[in-house]
Amino acid sequence: MTVHPFDYDAYWRDQTRDDWRKRGLHWHCYTSRMDGNAYGDDPARRDPNSELAPREIRDWLRKPPRAIRQMPASPEEAIRWLRAQWEPVKEQIGREATAISDETRFGTALYNLRCGNDVCWGFWLTASLHLHLAIVATDEKCHP
């Protein structure tokens, strides 16, 4: 058996993945800004009526519809939303924002969405303010 080398830095450049289409997915986009107290308040984060980011990404789908910020129909549309959230805050994030190039950061996210996976990013904007960005896939027919 031959094991071919794997390029861990470039796998996400594969633009042929369309698992999301085969599974009939669309996405729900969410944002949450939490101070340190809210971030550590597990009961509040588990509360399905709360707009605080849940600990488990799929639990976003149990949150109220008012928590949905956008409903992209394609991975590319979801990435445009994510980039629009990222650009205004990346200077606040500091070194963590530049540790990974935007090409790799968004390319990997796009690949994951094309594979039908969720994307979740979390960053501390200040010592006491956490930003949570999530793109959660669903195949439910929840919108007209």
Score class of each variant (00 low, 15 high):
47 D>I: 06
10 A>E: 11
48 P>W: 09
131 L>V: 10
50 S>M: 00
9 D>L: 09
85 Q>K: 09
6 F>Y: 15
70 Q>W: 07
51 E>N: 08
5 P>S: 09
68 I>H: 03
141 K>N: 13
102 D>G: 08
126 T>G: 03
126 T>A: 07
18 D>I: 06
56 E>T: 12
136 V>E: 00
2 T>I: 08
112 N>V: 01
21 R>C: 09
105 R>D: 03
123 F>D: 03
126 T>S: 15
10 A>Y: 03
58 R>S: 14
65 P>T: 04
136 V>S: 02
64 P>N: 04
139 D>Y: 03
95 R>I: 08
51 E>W: 05
100 I>N: 08
132 H>S: 09
138 T>R: 04
38 A>K: 10
87 E>V: 15
9 D>I: 01
80 R>Q: 10
17 R>L: 13
49 N>E: 11
141 K>D: 14
115 C>Q: 15
130 H>P: 00
138 T>I: 08
125 L>E: 05
58 R>N: 06
59 D>R: 15
74 S>F: 11
101 S>C: 05
141 K>G: 02
109 A>C: 06
108 T>R: 14
73 A>W: 08
63 K>N: 08
36 G>L: 10
46 R>F: 04
21 R>N: 10
37 N>M: 04
4 H>Q: 13
92 Q>D: 11
81 W>H: 08
12 W>Y: 14
47 D>P: 05
128 S>Q: 13
78 A>F: 07
54 P>L: 03
2 T>D: 04
69 R>V: 00
25 L>C: 06
11 Y>F: 15
118 D>E: 05
49 N>Q: 09
13 R>K: 07
14 D>G: 03
25 L>G: 07
46 R>M: 10
63 K>P: 06
98 T>I: 13
18 D>K: 15
53 A>H: 02
128 S>M: 10
134 A>I: 01
69 R>N: 01
124 W>K: 00
54 P>F: 00
43 P>W: 06
114 R>M: 09
105 R>Q: 07
14 D>K: 00
100 I>L: 10
61 L>A: 03
51 E>K: 06
141 K>M: 07
100 I>F: 02
40 G>P: 02
95 R>A: 14
13 R>S: 02
14 D>N: 15
21 R>K: 15
103 E>G: 13
26 H>C: 08
17 R>S: 11
41 D>A: 01
77 E>P: 01
15 Q>D: 15
5 P>Q: 13
128 S>F: 10
83 R>Q: 12
91 E>C: 06
4 H>R: 13
30 Y>L: 11
20 W>P: 09
39 Y>I: 00
71 M>I: 13
74 S>H: 11
71 M>P: 01
68 I>W: 02
63 K>R: 15
85 Q>E: 14
16 T>E: 12
74 S>M: 09
18 D>L: 11
33 R>K: 13
81 W>P: 12
113 L>P: 14
70 Q>C: 07
92 Q>V: 01
136 V>H: 00
35 D>N: 15
36 G>S: 13
82 L>K: 05
54 P>N: 02
87 E>W: 07
124 W>R: 03
109 A>T: 10
3 V>E: 04
119 V>S: 01
12 W>F: 09
18 D>W: 07
93 I>D: 09
82 L>R: 01
97 A>G: 12
119 V>I: 14
121 W>Q: 02
130 H>L: 15
